[in-house]
Write a protein that binds this DNA or RNA. Structure first.
Length: 129
RNA sequence: GUCGCAAGUUGUUCUACCGCUGUCUCGAUUUAUCGGGAGGGAGGAAAGUCCGGGCAACUAAGAGCACCGCACCCUUUGAAAGGAGGGGAUUCCGCUAACACGGAAGCCAGACAGUGCCACAGAAAACAAACUACCCCAACUCGACUUGUCGAGAUCAGGGAAAAGGUGAAAAGGUGGGGUAAGAGCCCACCGUGCUUGAUGGUAACAUCGGCUGCAUGGCAAACCUUGCGGGUUGUAAGAUCAAAUAAGUUCCGAUUUUGGGUGCUUGAACCAACCUUCGACUUGUCGAAGUAUCGGAAUGGGUAGAUCGCUUAGAUAAAUGGUAGAAGUCCCCUGACUGAUCGGUCGGGGGAUACAGAACCUGGCUUAUAGACUUGCAUUUUUA
RNA sequence: UGACCUAUGGUGUAAUGGUAACACAGCAGAUUUUGAUUCUGCUUUUCUAGGUUCGAAUCCUAGUAGGUCAA
């Protein structure tokens, strides 16, 4: 797989999977994100994670702000994902919790921390089995 | 020149690397994926959803009521709402003794078609009537004398008139004069205001002049309402096509059959009887005729989940149009040099800012947001003449 | 995306176009030896701006914020 791409297959867009992720998935907070993780039930088909970025309309009235935050998170994931394992496929949701628009220089390191935490929690366990 | 306010116009550019999303094309194969190439990818408001139109469904024979919207005149644009230009009246501001004049504003039809409301205060808040006060006058009292009249006072009933009555946002035309018992547009002059199928000017709204056997008949229609004109209702989550699974419906096929009896035994077909349902008959509680339920399979129509279309030379569907770095442009601040008698100009250096805002069927208006630049108008202050 | 609704003290609600009302809460004071109860007082730009009207919480227009429905 090429290092720095974010194609449609890597984004989570199936309604059923989203529903499962939000009902069954385990979550943790890491400012400015709330992260939801679940191992992909259809993992045999894919060899990469599927991610989902969400910014609530309650905190950001303007569509412009929501767009910019989503773009920054996606860009950060695109640049950083090559440094982490991708073998057992996971569903990951990044929910933006902070009340104000943060610059990408602060979003990048916190997303790296979040990815590290995901790796410790899930990927190491599943590799042991 | 400085510093604001309002309206209008405009709404930064380039390079590198890494990406996103449609379209076209070439190649590969696993036939729906991968790889290469070309070319496309936010706005003046995409926003608010305040009005519309297209489009779609429903209803369809047409009409009406209700409801909603619009409302000075002319030209123009438009399907309409609305926009643009010009004009008229009204109100406000400036100037003025006052007009005239200049500027600004607005949902500028109708209040004798009807209903309703007008708090408090006030005599009264609307067909002008009652009340207080006013005037006339018989009977009555007093005085005079010419002895039944006159004068004065006061007043019930009756009559006159609506001018005076502390209020209020608003009080029934105003001022002056005549008139009268007292008064009153009752009459006259001026002013205001209304009507006018009178004349003149103007396409018209309207203006000016004239006339009135007009001024007893306020204000509110962004209260109901009336008049004229326009609108059928619901919205793309509309709707169209394809269409699992499950349950139930219909049709067909197959298998089995509620209770008791019945053949030596088991099972139990046919058969007999009973029960139940329906129909018919009459002798009204009997007779006769017909019928039943369950399981499995197939077909069928409707149509759910879901998918596709609707959807677009931007066209996504947990929703693309981006990120990082650099450079340029514009503006602001600080600062150096040169020039220029102050304000300035030219060439440099450093720092900062670069708005409002993100399509979701398309489209016309309206409203709101908006850095900087430019144009116009108004205001502030400074210098020179 | 489309269609709608609402906004009144700190909270929950009233109010025909005519002095913004009630309950609870909070604060202060009085009563009491102290506390509770009770009594008195205070706390409001009726979401914002403009208009109609003699006079707007109410009527009209534009905006702001919050909410509802359509899966």
């Amino acid at each position: 797989m090429t290092a720095r791409t974010l194609e449609k297959a890597e984004r989570l867009h199936s309604k059923k999977l989203i529903q499962e992720l939000f009902t069954k998935g385990s979550s943790f907070y890491l400012h400015p994100f709330k992260v939801l993780v679940l191992s992909n039930p259809a993992s045999s088909a894919t060899d990469h994670h599927q991610i989902l970025v969400s910014v609530s309309k309650r905190n950001f009235k303007r569509a412009k702000d929501r767009n910019t935050i989503k773009r920054r998170i996606k860009e950060a994931y695109r640049l950083q994902k090559a440094n982490f394992k991708s073998s057992p496929s996971l569903l990951i949701a990044f929910l933006y919790i902070a009340k104000e628009v943060l610059p990408s220089s602060t979003i990048h390191p916190s997303l790296i921390q979040a990815l590290k935490k995901v790796e410790q929690k899930h990927l190491s366990d599943s590799n042991a089995f």
